[in-house]
């Protein structure tokens, strides 16, 4: 007895989720920030962000199809983190790394915050 481990399965599944997002297939929530709209899948948001986990596991909010985030949140930072959720790649532009870190903190994505902090320190 034994098993076959498909080593690239996780990446293949995530790539398909990102293809679904880009084609707006089965997306079930729109995140609104400062007039910008981002379509996504609640399951991916919940899997990656503590904030969305607490929102969408609340029976009173789990059926919401649109969420407006605090206008303090930077849409560019959110876009970088949403791409990260769907690709495992975190874009780090010097001009946006602080915004990305603050947005990750707001979304309760602590591991990303730590990584950004280490990146900033390494650049100092």
């Amino acid at each position: 007895d034994g098993c076959i481990q498909f080593t690239r399965h996780a990446g293949d599944v995530l790539l398909n989720f990102n293809r679904l997002r880009s084609r707006n297939i089965l997306t079930d929530v729109t995140i609104q920030i400062d007039g910008q709209h981002f379509c996504a899948h609640k399951t991916v948001l919940v899997a990656c962000s503590g904030l969305f986990y607490s929102i969408f596991t609340d029976p009173l909010k789990s059926n919401l199809s649109a969420i407006s985030l605090d206008p303090e949140v930077d849409p560019d930072g959110f876009a970088i983190l949403l791409d990260f959720m769907y690709t495992s790649t975190l874009t780090l532009k010097d001009s946006l790394v602080l915004v990305t870190m603050n947005t990750a903190s707001y979304l309760q994505m602590e591991h990303v915050v730590d990584t950004c902090r280490r990146f900033i320190k390494s650049r100092e």
Binding site: D1, G2, C3, I4, Q5, F6, T7, R8, H9, D12, V13, L15, N16, R19, L20, S22, R23, I25
Partner: peptide, 21 residues
């Protein structure tokens, strides 16, 4: 599953959803 007669398959595991239909 590590170790118990595990065969590692490096190839694609599932279909690829096209960028557009």
């Amino acid at each position: 599953y590590e170790g118990v007669n595990t065969i590692k398959e490096m190839g694609r595991s599932i279909h690829e959803i096209p960028r557009q239909e």
